[in-house]
Design a protein around this nucleic acid. Structure first.
Lengths: 141, 141
DNA sequence: CTATGTTATGAGACTTTGTCTCAATTGAAA
DNA sequence: TTTCAATTGAGACAAAGTCTCATAACATAG
């Protein structure tokens, strides 16, 4: 069996270095800016790669895990809403383990965002800030 | 034709006050905290309502428009990623009209988030801040 | 270098979330 | 009460993503 060149493919703990992953990574490296799984798959196709859609979807989280790519904007399963009465705008701390949310509101943070928008001549309509991590309970466990 | 009671249903500019919307709103009011369209639909079903899934999906943006509910977390069509090399963490200004993104980084904003997390004993892992609005070009048009 | 066990892969079915169409119904205003 | 545009239900459709399972490809021990 011929050994193909996998030298560009970095090792990821507990994962095999495969040609498929290598191909995907190469396509990512050739990509400008942000990308999504479909773009990646389309690019691979157009380069004649036989990599499957399933592999693209399977490989992405592995590359995130390996610190090779970052998740910029994650699809949440569904949109969420809340009654306005409950509102008074707030942002969220979301626990990665238990999924619980803590709401908070920081006027300083709001002002800071206004400054940033002003600098870019951006007309702010709304925003969402989600801080992901571990809540007190889950940290203690 | 009998006039059913729509008194709880507030008027929304350019929209009819209908029984279906009233039912949906009542279900929302009976709901605790955040909800998503499916939860809402399930609740209506379990109450014996004949309201269709399509109507639930159609009504939600109308209630948002009428200021009756807020969008807490919007589903983007797909997940986005970026190469780590490009990274140097940043947040995003996203234009609602043209979909363009402007990246920015504010150390002050980062610190502020650390303070918030500290106050809640929350162990921050990562966050995403997206400010939605209109970019300069789109504002000028 | 080869055998062996485990992990990864492709194909396509399936699921979930959301959108769209169109005929039938309903609200509102005259 | 009539009239007509807005709304609705049903179900087809679409897009993004997940899952299964037979087959293929790694890794490593021999």
């Amino acid at each position: 069996m011929k050994r193909k060149n996998l030298q560009e493919m970095p090792a990821i703990e507990g994962r095999r270095r495969t040609l498929v992953r290598q191909e995907i990574l190469t396509a990512i490296n050739a990509m400008e800016g942000h990308f999504d799984p479909q773009m990646l798959y389309d690019r691979l196709k157009s380069e004649g790669s036989k990599v499957s859609r399933a592999s693209v979807y399977r490989t992405i989280p592995i590359l995130v895990e390996g610190g090779i790519i970052n998740e910029v904007e994650k699809t949440e399963k569904h949109a969420h809403y809340e009654k306005v009465t409950e509102n008074k705008h707030h942002d969220h701390l979301i626990c990665l383990r238990c999924g619980g949310t803590i709401e908070f509101y920081s006027p300083t943070l709001e002002m800071l965002q206004d400054e940033i928008c002003q600098k870019e001549c951006f007309r702010r309509v709304r925003h969402s800030l989600e801080i992901l991590g571990l809540c007190r309970e889950c940290t203690e466990k």
